[in-house]
């Protein structure tokens, strides 16, 4: 059996979870899924479309609040004698998978992009922020792996009718010590969700020049109904808050259009924007990696080009 740990939000299985399911379904059958916590309406049917035969739903006080160890205990319970456990390559997916691997004393492969079917299982995964791939062998069972976000196309497979099995995992006291005790909602301005789910992202890097140099890029993002994202130089200099950072140690974005302005395109930045569908780079240096890797480019000073674009958009809107 192959077990997929699935994260949900109000709309059902999250995008990276669906991508992970797509990869899991290709690894063999039967495919099961485990959901811990909220089970949104329609998610059992949704998972069935990916070939999931059984949805294990963990309920009970022990897993009501998030805790890496408690949630991993639930996944472990559902895993039985699974040969492979797959999780999404999100912060929680990584955390739960690492707990599971540590509990079972088996290796874990993070950020997998492709998996073979042989024995020992061989996977390919992203390392060095996605600029290098590693082939890795996972000889132990179950093989525990997480699937890199936006590396596998979300694609439902041969649908089946999934059945729901609700269970209350046995969780030891020691596994309840580190768990969320309270959550403080933050307003939209303080979150990276807007950035990671935006269809258009306008980026700004060192080329912005100073903390006062973001007005035009912020305005462009607003005009396009998108979000502002920045490079690490910008956050380390304290020009913009860290939740706006794109890259290996920031957010991973996959918008339809990314417009990086004054960003050189270092591999750690590229790690966060490589899955953008179209990239339009605005940079004064035509040899900058961001320019050579982009789909489109404008060569020039962002402080002249971006206001001109804003003016043109406003002019056409009348």
């Amino acid at each position: 059996m192959i077990l997929a740990f699935v994260e949900t939000d109000a709309s059902g299985a999250t995008e990276v979870s669906r991508e992970a399911l797509t990869l899991a379904a290709r690894m063999g059958a039967p495919l099961h899924a485990v959901v811990v916590g909220a089970l949104p309406d329609g998610v059992v049917e949704q998972l069935g479309r990916y070939g999931v035969e059984v949805v294990h739903h963990a309920v009970g006080d022990a897993v009501a609040a998030f805790g890496g160890a408690a949630w991993a205990a639930a996944v472990q319970d559902a895993a039985g004698d699974a040969g492979v456990v797959v999780a999404p390559g999100t912060p929680r997916g990584m955390e739960v998978a690492a707990h599971l691997a540590a509990r079972l004393d088996v290796p874990m492969a993070a950020n997998v992009v492709a998996a073979g079917a042989g024995d020992p299982l061989r996977v390919t995964r992203q390392v060095v922020g996605g600029s290098v791939l590693e082939e890795m062998e996972l000889p132990a069972r179950p093989a525990v792996l997480t699937v890199a976000g936006h590396a596998v196309e979300d694609e439902p497979g041969d649908g089946v009718t999934a059945t729901l099995r609700t269970f209350t995992p046995q969780v030891a006291d020691a596994d309840l010590v580190a768990r969320v005790v309270s959550v403080e909602p933050v307003d939209d301005a303080g979150r990276s969700d807007a950035l990671t789910s935006a269809r258009v992202v306008v980026g700004a890097g060192r080329g912005a020049g100073s903390a006062a140099g973001f007005d035009a890029t912020v305005e462009l993002a607003e005009l396009l109904g998108g979000a502002l994202g920045v490079s690490r130089v910008v956050t380390s200099l304290g020009w913009r808050p860290h939740h706006e950072q794109i890259g290996q140690t920031g957010s991973r974005i996959s918008p339809d259009v990314y417009i990086p302005c004054g960003i050189s395109g270092a591999i750690q930045h590229w790690a966060g924007c490589a899955s953008s569908r179209t990239i339009l780079a605005i940079n004064s240096d035509e040899a900058a990696p961001m320019v050579t890797k982009a789909t489109y480019a404008v060569i020039g000073d962002m402080h002249e080009v971006v206001p001109a674009i804003n003016a043109e958009i406003r002019r056409r809107r009348g």
Binding site: V132, E134, T295, Y296, V298, A308
Partner: peptide
């Protein structure tokens, strides 16, 4: 468990330059 490292296949890329400076707006 590493078998080997490899570089991702280079994505052949031809960038289309839309123009230079504010005239490209």
């Amino acid at each position: 468990g590493r078998v080997r490292l490899l570089l991702p296949p280079a994505r052949p890329n031809v960038v289309e330059v839309l123009g230079e400076g504010p005239d490209a707006a």
